[in-house]
């Protein structure tokens, strides 16, 4: 069914106005950033908001700051395509730009935003895993001020997040990658494009001064739990060690042991577990090799 339920339409001209609207409209309103998820949900009558607050053209919420040594700030309504093709981000955060490039189709990336992808909080979303692996924080604003939290604290479950009434996610803050570190992203879907991932993962590895022993590792899995799953077992296994083939295999097993996937129309839980192993092996190796070169 393609006819939308009736709603009132607001297109604020400033962030301030947007925040006021979000507050006054409360829970009956939905924020439209790109629309590639929201409009589909509305067409399918999964949600019937009484008001739409369109922030997709708010220049105040768009932009990328990515300077040497200073991490990066990505405003929430920045189009995914602008992130994907940003040369500075590609250089500093290839895991993120790669993940963004694998999301939906070109049209979806042109229309959609990273803020939308995270606020939609689908367990299969592409960007939360790399953001989490990179240690990203989100900035949430309301008329009363702003607060900051890690992406993994923000996303709480299937289509659930920490956004409260009257709030808008306005910014992502990415820390500067530490010395001798590298992050990689991978995903498994049935087709080679236009997929909802059956599993995705990002791995961030930091090496010690010797450029061989692992100082820290953060492995985050997507689509295998109701929210991005940060591995405890893999760091426990790898930190302090030099990577060997044997450790690679064990890292795969460790990640598998933590994944709690479900079976659905796209893949079975067993298969998701299997490919988590494959992704972990590949990405740990890739990130490790890249960190050596970093």
């Amino acid at each position: 069914m393609n006819i939308l339920h009736e709603f009132e339409f607001f297109k604020p001209k400033s962030k301030k106005e947007a925040l006021e609207l979000v507050k006054s409209q409360g829970s009956k309103a939905k924020v439209l950033a790109g629309g590639t998820d929201l409009i589909i949900q509305m067409k399918e009558k999964m949600i019937k908001p009484d008001a739409i607050i369109d922030i997709s053209d708010l220049e105040e919420l768009k932009g990328i700051k990515c300077k040497e040594g200073k991490g990066a700030e990505i405003l929430s309504c920045t189009k995914l395509a602008d992130i994907e093709f940003n040369a500075d981000l590609q250089k500093k955060y290839p895991a993120l730009t790669h993940a963004v490039g694998q999301l939906g189709s070109n049209q979806v990336r042109v229309m959609g935003t990273m803020g939308g992808n995270c606020c939609h909080s689908s367990p299969a979303a592409e960007t939360p895993a790399p953001l989490s692996a990179l240690g990203a924080k989100v900035v949430i604003e309301s008329v009363d001020g702003e607060r900051e939290m890690t992406i993994e604290d923000f996303i709480q479950g299937n289509r659930r997040n920490d956004l409260k009434e009257g709030e808008i996610l306005t910014k992502f803050i990415l820390p500067e990658p530490v010395k001798n570190s590298a992050c990689r992203y991978g995903h498994i879907g049935l087709r080679n494009a236009m997929e909802i991932d059956c599993a995705n993962m990002a791995v961030n590895i930091e090496l010690g001064e010797d450029k061989e022993s692992i100082k820290s590792v953060k492995l985050v899995m997507g689509s295998v739990a109701i929210r991005p799953l940060v591995s405890q077992a893999v760091p426990a296994l790898l930190v302090g060690k030099k990577l060997t083939e044997e450790l690679v295999i064990k890292a795969g097993e460790a990640a598998q042991s933590e994944a709690k996937p479900i079976s659905d129309v796209r893949a079975s839980a067993e298969y998701r577990k299997e490919v988590i192993g494959a992704l972990a092996r590949r990405l740990v190796k890739e990130a490790y090799e890249a960190a050596k070169e970093a």
């Binding site: 339409f9 297109k11 629309g35 590639t36 409009i39 369109d54 070109n106 049209q107 042109v110």
Partner: peptide, 24 residues
Amino acid sequence: GDCGACTILVDGKAHLSCLMLAVS
């Protein structure tokens, strides 16, 4: 938004007109 048949250019970029509100 799955098939791309409704693709149009908006400010030169490919958009899915089936997922866009006219008022936007």
